[in-house]
């Protein structure tokens, strides 16, 4: 655990020594602020669902930007050779990097807490729905990050890692809508909507916390991280 923390600290520090984290953070807050302003304040709505959905689309771009460097950059610059020959295990490296991304993501979410605060002070929101929505965002963000980890673990080009992750995340996000449009109902549509990341998010925004949805997100995170660790181990072999 000590090693996980060490790697995590190193990555968090790295985020703030490059313009990447600041840019992502600013863009995210700016766009969600604008949407909050136009969509909620002007329409006198107390629901955050539209903002949450928009955030998901922002995450499709922002989260791959946060994960793209984590492994690919180490490979590109050769520092992976240092890291892999220090007395530290591969899974500790993967977990440390993932948790660094997760910490930054949580910080990002934390900076949007004035939105519900406004609503509570001047509107009439459903606090349960908002809390559930944030829980959903946290799970969804973790899922996006783990898929970003998988992408960055598999290449030595940060750009490729970004494009791969953003592509996969976009696919998983829109696939639910596509299924409904083309397949209508039936077994295939059910399956496709089951693997759609956004379909699972819908329940949270309505204030219902469903164990099925939580299990879905946690299993994707687990699987993606497990596969990332394997990829890092395998890269040792092939090189």
């Amino acid at each position: 655990m000590k090693n996980v923390k060490t790697i995590m600290d190193k990555e968090i520090r790295a985020y703030f020594t490059s313009p990447m984290a600041y840019t992502a953070l600013c863009l995210f807050l700016l766009i969600s602020g604008v949407i909050f302003n136009s969509n909620i304040l002007k329409e006198h709505s107390s629901e955050m669902i539209n903002l949450f959905i928009l955030m998901i689309y922002l995450f499709i771009m922002i989260i791959p930007a946060l994960t793209m460097h984590l492994f690919a950059e180490e490979r590109r610059s050769g520092t992976i050779e240092l890291l892999m020959t220090y007395p530290i295990q591969d899974w500790e490296v993967v977990m440390g990097k993932f948790l660094a991304g997760f910490a930054l993501f949580m910080g990002m979410l934390l900076l949007t807490f004035h939105f519900p605060l406004f609503l509570l002070m001047w509107g009439n929101p459903d606090p349960g729905a908002i809390l559930a929505g944030y829980l959903g965002l946290i799970l969804l963000g973790g899922t996006f990050l783990s898929i970003g980890m998988l992408a960055t673990s598999s290449t030595k080009s940060p750009n490729v890692a970004f494009i791969m992750a953003a592509g996969v995340l976009f696919g998983l996000t829109v696939i639910g809508q596509v299924a409904i449009n083309f397949a209508g109902t039936g077994a295939i549509a059910d399956f496709v909507s089951y693997i759609s990341i956004t379909e699972h998010f819908r329940n949270f925004t309505m204030g219902t916390i469903n164990s099925k949805d939580i299990v879905f997100y946690l299993s994707v995170i687990f699987f993606a991280l497990f596969a990332s660790i394997r990829l890092v181990e395998m890269r040792r072999w092939k090189n």
Partner: peptide
């Protein structure tokens, strides 16, 4: 000699010391 170019010498050596426990 691959090194973390964004870190200062001190930060880097501290990180290595932590990793090497």
């Amino acid at each position: 000699v691959p090194l973390y170019n964004n870190m200062s010498v001190n930060t880097f050596l501290n990180f290595v010391a932590r990793v090497k426990d």
